[in-house]
């Protein structure tokens, strides 16, 4: 059992775990953070698969931009909700 395989197994497990938790965790903000973590793990995975181009793109687009989009949407929705509650 090489070090590489061990790392791969760990990475695989973390990928599955973070993906699973991103869907199942009750709190939305945590889900989003987990999703961004998932994106970063994907970046590592691409690096492990000798695909540096995809790793770069995943980091910038997959984790970065998608994460930013999601967080921004979440923030806007929270603000809206808070506003609505304040009105009550």
């Amino acid at each position: 059992m090489s070090l590489g395989l061990g790392f791969d197994l760990l990475l695989a497990a973390s990928l599955l775990w973070s993906g699973w938790r991103a869907l199942s965790t009750p709190r939305l903000d945590r889900a989003l953070v987990l999703f961004i973590a998932f994106g970063l793990l994907m970046t590592l995975t691409w690096a492990r698969l000798a695909a540096p181009d995809i790793a770069l793109a995943e980091a910038a687009i997959g984790a970065g931009l998608t994460g930013a989009l999601l967080l921004d949407a979440f923030g806007a929705l929270q603000a809206k909700r808070a506003e609505a509650e304040a009105k009550k």
């Binding site: 993906g19 939305l28 889900a31 949407a73």
Partner: peptide, 18 residues
């Protein structure tokens, strides 16, 4: 929940890419 559904879609995509 639609935001989570979007997350799920991205997982699906990542899976296919892998």
């Amino acid at each position: 929940h639609l935001l989570r559904r979007i997350l799920a879609f991205n997982l699906m995509g990542s899976g296919a890419f892998l």
